[in-house]
Nucleic acid binder design. Structure first.
Lengths: 234, 234
DNA sequence: ACAAAAGTGTTCTCGTTACACCCATGT
DNA sequence: ACATGGGTGTAACGAGAACACTTTTGT
């Protein structure tokens, strides 16, 4: 025997939870579903896995299709396979989460999907089990960002410490001491201070920083413990 | 339209990485594959997902089929979907890892699969991408156990601190100070000391401890940081 | 001159580490 | 009596937390 008979085949899809940060709030990108079932309802961006495609490839393709962006932080979250999660046909969906620079995205536009950004606490009703997926993604983001320097992925190339701090504060609904924050972040050695300042958000101006990409690759696994008492998070 | 036409269906499977600890070494359970392709080669225990089965259910079923055990610690690891990973037919496999008390398992026996335990550094060549899965599982176990109290799952109901310490030392290839270890573990409040001692491994005897199940559920997310400098692990 | 945000240093506390001796028991 | 492994306390250190004032500059 060199085939698997009698095993039932099913559909496999990928869904993407796309996070963005507008400077004030953490958001996710949703689309209005363009086909039945549930046409016109809010949904994560997703698609079926093609015949000769790896899962990561499929997620990358789908992300690009919606945002036009490549080279994005993308990580597999979890596979969801409840029978009946898609009412039409048995489908397993592998969820991915992505972190993008929302302003980069805005430059790309171009969309048949009518995507919109939603604040995390204002997510509308979503199709299927997408609400579950979003919850899982939020939790994973909080978990992971407490220990790894990934939140840079949500910011532009150049960013200021106050911007970064606001991002952390938003994600953990916490307020942080800026002295301790700056010391901790800079002590990683991952940031390089630029000469220019951001003069938009304050009179005095805040220094821009860039990621030291080389060190970033190497130190990615360094735990950060940015959030005081992050061990008390759930 | 209320069907998905033109989408290619595929097979979906579950594979389990089953960890056990014999008191000295961390091991995983492998079987000799009983059907083509690759009949007779070493493999993870797995199986196809049935028509009306959730992923977690499938993993539980497969774990029970091999070990006879229920109520086991089981967690989804990652979905693997390289086209061609299974040479016969396109198959996506969702890998799960399980932690079992190896002695419980030995009581169950009964097996058509000729399973054997292998030390982690003596894993034979495995079929398909199973070696990859095992690597991912090892990494995840080390990652997770550094912060969450899950290693109890590898031990019997009653266990001693020296046993637990040996387990940590094995997993992290580290040697730990027993005074600091005991203080740290006991400070979680998760362990209840029993009156009896284990007199098998020493003349004096070591106190048995049991998990405080109630607190365990609640404090599961408490980070432990058992391993000094665990943040330097990759 | 003043309002608004950026930047910076020090002290205290508490958890982590390093370290050495006595205890209980079977032979 | 002694060998073997189990159990415990303390001092030094370092990372994290708390905390307030000065600087810059546009209006």
């Amino acid at each position: 025997m060199t085939t698997y008979n009698n095993q039932s085949k099913l559909l496999a899809a990928v869904d993407c939870i796309i996070f963005g940060f507008d400077g004030l709030h953490l958001k996710i990108l949703l689309i209005k579903r363009g086909f039945e079932p549930a046409l016109g309802q809010w949904s994560l961006m997703g698609g079926f896995i093609k015949k000769n495609e790896d899962l990561d490839e499929a997620a990358t393709r789908i992300l690009k299709k919606l945002t036009g962006l490549e080279g994005i932080y993308l990580e597999q979250l979890h596979a969801f396979g409840q029978p009946g999660r898609d009412p039409i046909d048995r489908t397993i969906s592998v969820a991915y989460f992505a972190l993008i620079d929302i302003h980069q995205y805005e430059k790309q536009l171009s969309n048949d999907y009518h995507p919109e950004w939603f604040n995390l606490n204002e997510i509308p009703k979503l199709i299927f089990d997408h609400t579950l997926m979003v919850e899982a993604a939020k939790e994973k983001l909080r978990y992971k960002a407490a220990m790894h320097p990934i939140l840079f992925e949500l910011l532009p190339n150049k960013f200021t410490l106050p911007q970064l701090q606001t991002l952390y504060e938003e994600i953990y609904s916490a307020s942080l001491d800026k002295r301790n924050f700056s010391r901790k972040i800079l002590s990683t050695g991952l940031l390089i201070r630029q000469k220019e300042k951001d003069k938009i958000n304050s009179r005095r101006g805040a220094y821009y920083y860039k990621l030291d990409k080389g060190k970033y690759e190497k130190k990615f696994q360094s735990f950060l413990n940015i959030i005081p008492n992050s061990h008390k998070l759930r």
